[in-house]
Design a protein around this nucleic acid. Sequence first.
DNA 1: ATTTATGCAAAACTTTTGCATGGGA
DNA 2: TCCCATGCAAAAGTTTTGCATAAAT
Lengths: 149, 149
Amino acid sequence: MRQDCPYIQSLKKAGYRLTQARLTVLDVLESEHGHITSADVLEKVERINPAIGRASVFRTLELFTQLGFIRPTYINTSLTPTYVMMHGGHHHHVICTECNRFFEFDDCGLEVISRNLQRELDVQISGHLLEFYGVCADCRGPDLAEQSS
Amino acid sequence: MRQDCPYIQSLKKAGYRLTQARLTVLDVLESEHGHITSADVLEKVERINPAIGRASVFRTLELFTQLGFIRPTYINTSLTPTYVMMHGGHHHHVICTECNRFFEFDDCGLEVISRNLQRELDVQISGHLLEFYGVCADCRGPDLAEQSS
DNA sequence: ATTTATGCAAAACTTTTGCATGGGA
DNA sequence: TCCCATGCAAAAGTTTTGCATAAAT
């Protein structure tokens, strides 16, 4: 486990202990490169280390959310949250409303808007989440779009 | 109840019946100008018309989400969703991570990005949600807006 | 007259809590 | 050693289901 991981550094700096539960949840989150449901986190943590209780996973998820590491979002119509990693404080993706597939993208050109809002509303902005909704090529049918399943 | 309401038009056009439950939930959503938790929707609908069952409220909320009228988001650390109205397919706000207050804003200048993504990812985009996170002036302290308690 | 949508109430789940105890610094 | 964080298991809530019935078109 990389001690140079920025999240681990943040945990330490904030005075939180580096426990098995926290490190394992962090590993699971990062192994999913970006987004994972709470149910999946529970399952994967359990598989890696059965000694870690569910409660700790939820407590960790809440802590990480408070610290800004992750952010819960609703994806499909289920009641369980999908957590996305807030690398550098932000996250951007396009979600296909038909198949719920994710398409992540990096640049969002929101720095200017962020600065303006900061000034206009007098809010010290630390991050953002941008979600676009649409229908991907596959879900629009094979006729008009390329198929690449 | 305004029959010219765009949401009512959409419901009709999609072939859904204009029932008491749906019209009442719509009224509640609009009366909250923007965002409301599921628990609050339940409570307000109950107050307006006790004959409407909880199940119908949830079914309606899910339907409206599928139709793109609203979008569930996580605000405070509670497990209940907060629904935001997707006027014109989009919604933008800044959330204070301390007091959970909302600051909505209109323009987000995302049309260009939206078009680019549409072309690059071949996804037909229908809307978006943009959330900024930060700490508002009040929460940063009374005077210097710099104090951290 | 047709169906769709509803209400009711129980079932199904997910998340939270309390407390004694273990593990990190 | 000190005290934060954990595990366990039950409790607390929220959301979903099944089915007979009401109501919208």
